[in-house]
Design a binder for these strands. Structure first.
Lengths: 335, 335
DNA sequence: TTGAAAGCGGTACCAG
DNA sequence: CTGGTACCGCTTTCAA
C-alpha cells in the first residue's frame, strides 16, 4: 500500500498525493477530496522511513537516559516530549540501565535513525562516544558529563553545592557519624556525588562516613542500607544518592525498627514527587527537572525565533528542601 | 555519508559494503577489512530508514501505554524490551496519557514506522481504531480492551475477581462503609474496576460506597482521597484503583491525622514495587506484569521455534497480597 | 567473491 | 493546479 496505489485510485499522480498529504502546494479542492477518499478507502498510512529518506529529515530527536524507571529521568523525558510535540517533533527514548555497551548501542541506534538532535542524560558516558558525537555536527546535550564543544551543550548540576547543603544541615543537627547510600553507577554523577559528599564532610572535623551501594531502585536502596547496617556501623544519618534509593533505605530502617528521624535521619536528592509522598517526607535537594527538559528542547530544536543557543554550559544550583526525615542527632548513649 | 562514500574509499561496490555490514554473503577477509576500516575512518552509520525501506522490514515492534510514569506500565514495557532485544528486535514506546487522540496519533505513528507488531496496553482504545488495527494484518496484542480477532491476541485480567477478593477481605474485617478512589480514565479497566467493585459490594447487604477520582498519579490519589474525605464521608476502608493512587491516598490520610490501618484501611491494585516500600505496606492484588510482557513478546515476534501463537485470548487470575494497610474496621463509635 | 542495477516509498523541482 | 522524474541510502537479485 503506497503512494502509487493511492494515486491510481484517485486518478492523479503521486506528486499530487504527496501534496495533499503534506498540505503543500495548491491542490484543487475537488482533487484533494478524491485523494483523501482514496487514502481513507485504502487505509493508507505513509511510510515514514521513505519520508525521512526522501525528505532528508526525520522530524525526530532522541533522548537517552540511564534509568527511565527513576522518575527523575522520566520527568525530564516527559518535559522534552511535551516541548518537542509542541514544535512538531517526535522523540525517541532509550534506556541504558547504566550499561556502557547499551549506551553505545543506543547512540548508534539514534544516529542510525537520523535524529536531528540527541540528549544524553546518563552517567556512563565514555570519552570515545563523546568525541564521536562531537564530530557528528548534530546538536547534542549532555547532562552531567563531558565538556561543552562546538555542537554540544552541557547541563551540569552543582552537586557539590547540593551535598554541602545536606551535610551542613545534618552537621547543624549534631550528626557526626554518617552513612552514604550510593548506587552502582561508578562514573559521572554518582562518583561525583560520593566525592562531593566526602569533600563536604572533609570540611568538618571528626565526621565519619561509610558508604554502600545497590541498584538505582527502591530495592537497591534497601539492600545498600541493609548492608551498611549489617556491617555493624551505626550512623546517625544516611545521605542517599537520590530519592528512590532513600525511600528504599527508609524501608530497610523501618524493618529494623529504626525510627526516622528520631533514631536516624535520612536525606534524598532530586525532589521527585515520591519524596513528598513517602513516610516520613524526605528532606532532599531539588533538581529542576522541568527546567532541564526545557533547556534540552530549546537546545536541540532550532526555535523559529532563533536565539543562538543557550551557550555551551549551563550550571544549575540546587536547593535544599526540608521535610520530616531529618532531625537532631540522637544522644550518644542511645541504642 | 553513505554506502557509496564507504565503497569508494574501500575501492569496492556498495553491494560489498552492504554485505560486510550485514555479515551476508561471502566476502574475502582482506576486502572485509578494507571496508571495515573505511567505515571506521568515515565514522559511517548506516541509515536505518533506508535500510527498513529497502529491506522491507523494520526489525521493530511498538508498545503503547497509557501512563509510563506508573510502574505498572513500565514493568510491562521493560519485560517486552528485554525479550525483544533477545530476539534481535528494537522496541518503540509511546505514552498516551490516557488521551484518546494521542492514542490515535501513536498508533498512526507506529504504523507509519512500519512496526512489525504492536501492543496496546491502554484503557482508552476506541472501536474504530481496533477495527483499523484488525485489518492491518500486523500482529497486535491488546491488554484489557477490545475483542480477539484474526491477528489480535487479547490479554485480560479478571478484575472482577481481584476486586472481589479485596471486598471479601475487607468485609471479613468488618468494613461496611467503603470509599473508592479511581482515576479519570473512564473507559476500560477503570470503568471495569469501578463496576467490579460495585458488583462485588452488591453481593453484601448494607455496604455503602462512594467514589472519587483524580489522575493516575500519587498526586491524583491524594486529591481524590481529600475530595472524598472533604465531603464529610467517613469510610472505614478505601479501595484504590491501583497502587500509585493508593500511595497518594495514604499521604492524604496521614496529613489528616488518620492512621492506617487503625482508623482506616487502604488497598491498592497491581502490586508494584512501591506497594511494598510505602508505609504502611499496601494490601493489594498482584498482576503479573512480567508474564504479560512475555506474552506480548511471544505474540508479536514470530519465535524461531514457531508455536502457533498463544491463542486469541488469555485470562489472568490476580491474587490478593496481604500487607499492613488493612485491618479490622474501627468500632462504630470511633472518631 | 564482487559489481551493476532495479527497486523500496516518498519528496521536490521543473515543466506544462 | 498537476504530472514527470531524479534522487534519498540501502538491499537484493543476477551476472560476471
Amino acid at each position: 500500500m503506497n503512494l502509487e496505489h493511492v494515486a491510481r485510485r484517485a486518478r492523479v499522480s503521486t506528486a499530487t498525493v504527496s501534496r495533499v498529504l503534506n498540505n503543500a502546494g495548491v491542490v484543487r479542492v475537488s482533487t484533494r477530496q478524491r485523494v483523501m477518499q482514496a487514502i481513507e478507502e485504502l487505509r493508507y498510512h505513509p511510510n515514514l522511513h521513505a519520508r525521512s529518506l526522501a525528505g532528508g529529515r526525520s522530524g525526530t530527536i532522541g533522548v537517552i537516559v540511564s534509568n527511565l524507571e527513576n522518575p527523575f529521568f522520566f520527568d525530564i523525558y516527559k518535559t522534552v516530549e511535551r516541548g518537542a510535540h509542541a514544535r512538531g517533533y517526535e522523540v525517541l527514548i532509550a534506556n541504558t540501565d547504566y550499561r556502557a555497551e547499551q549506551l553505545v548501542a543506543s547512540v548508534r541506534l539514534m544516529i542510525g535513525r537520523r535524529v536531528e538532535g540527541l540528549a544524553a542524560v546518563v552517567s556512563e558516558m565514555d570519552p570515545e562516544l563523546i568525541r564521536e558525537l562531537a564530530e557528528s555536527r548534530m546538536p547534542v546535550v549532555f547532562y552531567d558529563v563531558g565538556a561543552p564543544r562546538g555542537n554540544i551543550v552541557n547541563i551540569r548540576v552543582n552537586y557539590a553545592r547540593g551535598i554541602e547543603r545536606i551535610v551542613d544541615h545534618l552537621f547543624g543537627l549534631g550528626h557526626r557519624r554518617l552513612g552514604f547510600i550510593g548506587h552502582h553507577a561508578t562514573l559521572g554523577p554518582l562518583g561525583e556525588r560520593v566525592r562531593a559528599a566526602m569533600d563536604a564532610v572533609g570540611r568538618y572535623p571528626s565526621i565519619e562516613v561509610r558508604a554502600a551501594a545497590g541498584g538505582d531502585t527502591l530495592e537497591g536502596g534497601r539492600q545498600a542500607a541493609q548492608e551498611l547496617l549489617g556491617s555493624g556501623y551505626r550512623p546517625t544519618a544516611l545521605i542517599c544518592v537520590n530519592d528512590i534509593t532513600a525511600v528504599g533505605a527508609l524501608q530497610a530502617l523501618r524493618s529494623q525498627g529504626i525510627q526516622v528521624p528520631r533514631d536516624m535521619s535520612v536525606t534524598g536528592f532530586d525532589n521527585i514527587a515520591l519524596s513528598e509522598f513517602c513516610y516520613p517526607g524526605l528532606t532532599t535537594v531539588d533538581i529542576p527537572r522541568q527546567r532541564i527538559g526545557r533547556i534540552i528542547c530549546e537546545s536541540l530544536i532550532p526555535a523559529a525565533e532563533s536565539e543562538a543557543g543557550n551557550g555551551p554550559e549551563i550550571l544549575i544550583e540546587p536547593e535544599l528542601v526540608l521535610r520530616d526525615s531529618t532531625g537532631p542527632a540522637p544522644p550518644a548513649g542511645a541504642p
